[in-house]
Design a protein around this nucleic acid. Structure first.
Lengths: 241, 241
DNA sequence: GGCGAGGTGTGATGTTTATCACACCTGAAT
DNA sequence: ATTCAGGTGTGATAAACATCACACCTCGCC
């Protein structure tokens, strides 16, 4: 007999799913079926019907929108423990973004119909689920603010802070990222070109606001970064990639 | 004895609340208490605790974010029949935008705690509410796309289409807006300056894509506008202000 | 150890958008 | 009828950002 260790016990540590109590999360988990995707594969495409929710057990996923001329805008990064997907009504609603695996991923897939059934049965879960959706909405809104308000410099500064909140570890006065980012990846996160990002990052280096250490970014002066994007001090669970 | 005519019967025609069946909407309505606000007043402020939902019975409301140096970004317009507000978890979550009355308004206010209770009791409503939130989320995402992807020209074109879908009536080949918009109002909707909007609108006039008739905009060539913003043909309930 | 793909760094140049400055127009209030 | 606030129109200029072009630098792989 196969013993399954509930994911809920393992890695439901992400801020993204903090809305859920363990008890209720297990109920969601019972609806999931397993799916594996390889690095670079799409989990769903913009323009497809949206009727699934995904729980990321391991790996990393980005939500992107591509314009017809090859430009990419990356809206979110998801990590192990995150829940993502779009919710439609019954009228054949289409995804507005694509989800792409950045690494090999292990997913739990929930069908919207099953989700509806369990929300219908379970008031506790419904309330928690609503809070999760509110969380996602606020997240999108703050991202929009960061991208629109203080130019590309502001967008970059806020993105560096978001990276730090998502992938950073504090070491005294500096924050070290645990993941490498190429200039192009950062550019896609802020809707700018690689060259612009490169020049801005080098300027930040000169100003001793950031530093590089074997390829990973370190933030030396968080306050300066916050000043550049007029940081409002959102809680860390919102201010992430 | 006072007879109250349920709002649900009167003006629950907005796309924004189409997720709800009349039966369930009436349940929401029972939670509402009435509030009147005057033109120019704030209904809630960014930075305040968010624990209310608002149903707009009459009037018009905009959701705005203001930067420290007086710039305003307007994210949504709400009309009679729309539901709006932010949902928080229990941890003292703050509004990221402000809601301001553009005209005198009559509101139905729902406390989040009451909402939670009724969602908890009523599975049907919970499922419909979830769909409404999914709708709002997609709406925000498409707005973000429109603002980021095709420059200010694209943002203006898409905003004109959104205005048309929200306030326009078809007259043969042209669409006439039923509301006037100043250049500044449009500028705030797309995160540009009044001057830029003015120049772009005049260019569109020269190109016979739009026209003015005693102060209101008329769209003469919708297809051209769609081309400018690479319109993806989102359904009208999403593509609105 | 050399090759090639993908990443970085940087100048020159062009486009887009904001800023400043000011003229004019319109309509409601005195 | 005059005034004044708020809106429009437009030139000149500057700042922000993209584009193009190319050099160079990795690092895994044959």
């Amino acid at each position: 007999m196969k013993v399954t260790c509930p994911v809920a016990m393992m890695n439901k540590g992400s801020y993204n799913t903090q809305s859920f109590t363990n008890e209720n999360f297990v109920k969601l988990e019972e609806l999931m079926y397993e799916q594996q995707v390889q690095r670079g594969e799409k989990i769903y495409w913009e323009g497809n019907d949206c009727n699934h929710l995904y729980y990321l057990k391991s790996g990393a996923v980005k939500l992107t929108k591509s314009s017809d001329e090859g430009k990419d805008l990356v809206l979110y990064h998801f990590q192990a423990g995150d829940l993502f997907g779009e919710i439609g009504d019954d009228s054949h609603v289409l995804n507005s973004f694509s989800a792409e695996a950045m690494t090999d991923c292990s997913l739990g897939v929930i069908q919207q119909k099953d989700l509806e059934t369990i929300l219908w049965q379970n008031g506790d879960l419904a309330v928690e689920f609503m809070k999760w959706m509110g969380y996602m909405q606020r997240f999108t809104q703050t991202k929009l603010r960061d991208l629109m308000f203080f130019g590309k410099h502001g967008a970059l500064a806020s993105t560096l802070i978001r990276i730090a909140n998502t992938y950073g570890i504090e070491e005294g006065n500096t924050i070290r990222m645990t993941t490498k980012f190429t200039n192009t990846e950062i550019a896609d996160l802020i809707g700018a070109t690689r060259e612009t990002v490169n020049r801005m990052l080098n300027q930040l280096k000169k100003d001793n606001i950031i530093a590089y250490e074997n390829g990973t970014i370190m933030i030396k002066d968080l306050e300066q970064l916050k000043a550049i994007c007029h940081c409002e001090g959102c809680p860390k669970n919102i201010c992430r990639l």
